[in-house]
Write a protein that binds this DNA or RNA. Sequence first.
DNA 1: AGTCAATGGACTGGACGTAGACCAATAGAC
DNA 2: GTCTATTGGTCTACGTCCAGTCCATTGACT
Lengths: 239, 239
Amino acid sequence: MVVQADDAVFRPVRAGNPFEETVERLLQAIKLGVVVPGDRLPPERELATRLNVSRVTLREAIHALTEAGYVESRRGRYGGTFVNEQLPKPRRTPAKRLARDLAAGLDDALTLRFVLETGAAEAAATRTLTDAERDHLQRCLADTNAATLTDYRRLDSRLHLAIAEVTGSPSLTSAMADVRMRLNELLDAIPLLQPNLDHSNEQHRAVVDAILAGDPQTARQTMQEHLAGTEALLRAFLE
Amino acid sequence: MVVQADDAVFRPVRAGNPFEETVERLLQAIKLGVVVPGDRLPPERELATRLNVSRVTLREAIHALTEAGYVESRRGRYGGTFVNEQLPKPRRTPAKRLARDLAAGLDDALTLRFVLETGAAEAAATRTLTDAERDHLQRCLADTNAATLTDYRRLDSRLHLAIAEVTGSPSLTSAMADVRMRLNELLDAIPLLQPNLDHSNEQHRAVVDAILAGDPQTARQTMQEHLAGTEALLRAFLE
DNA sequence: AGTCAATGGACTGGACGTAGACCAATAGAC
DNA sequence: GTCTATTGGTCTACGTCCAGTCCATTGACT
């Protein structure tokens, strides 16, 4: 009785070699706004331990990101590896090509994103938050509202991740970060228009308000509408 | 601005060595009922390719499972590696010990499970299902209803996975399989009582009915109640 | 009875990743 | 000015994992 489910359970044990996965992870931290321009990454020894890779491998990954223009390293005490103030622009891969490459996985990613993000909003609103968590949420919201067009994607991601964080479930946060990275390339292919951005900001505020007010039903519903907007935009653009 | 989110993004790139991860994956297939006793696993060459590990590594993993009593291999054409009819009983680790070990990750896993399973039920009810998918769901439901106490956990998992499958999102299915494995050890520590089992079966039927009827709201709500029951049982038992 | 295709079983050379030690530079503390 | 703790930079010996190849066994088909 072997059915389709084995596609899920017999999927690859590892996506690539440690080097590639490490690069991907560091890019995730930068592109999702977990570390912002000017920030210092943790020291190599500590970061290597946390990522569970050797320092050599981590350094190769950092070297690759240095060459790509994402980070810069300085030696000596109080040195470290710093995120560049000017991040490289994502290459605007032609949407046609993206659509062809990712069509298969697009529904997959969108479905998972929907489940994770609406669930996170609801779960966040269910918990009683600490003052630090409330501040953190509002800070991320304010940053996103103040974002320019070039910074918007990153700060938007940061806000959505912050919502996942305040659920108190690290696994949920990780899963959301992963699926968001999968959709990033596609989202970068869509031109960002100010009206859409304004509308997003309104919805963000409504979601955060509902979470802070402890209203799970509204938080979920509002997030659902927010995601539907992006999804419709995405599908329309790729048709 | 490095905050708590880096715990999620700077988490280990790989959980262990390929051997361990492969063993874990095969155990997942068996314990979640994706392959049932008597089934033949895919040929080593194919399975190694799908798991993205070398055949040597896969064979070591299979060897470990053979020694543990889960599978048996036969050579020659029409041979292969088969799941044993009599699976080893899970060792009943004392709940106290489990509670201590997993207390940190328990809320994490329960939160993620809640989000994924309620989301999956809703998403499944949103899609229009093929006849094969409807049959598959009902078959899994019937199997679970007919399950004995010893088989129940496995067939229950199989049913929940089937719901994830019919969302059409492999990533969602994988994520649910992973979180379920994390909770498995704990669930095995709880004695299974017939009344609880009967109640679960009723809820299962209600969830599947809602999915087949295309009623997302009811599917989510019913699944939520179902999960709440298990969660309450779990927490009460671990106190 | 013989054939043969598919499968598990075993071996080897090379590439990759790791652990650990050591070097070099830097900026604050004194 | 000197010292020193902390950080990135470099090297080496070792273990793991892998791709590829060939062998051994089996049972359905002719």
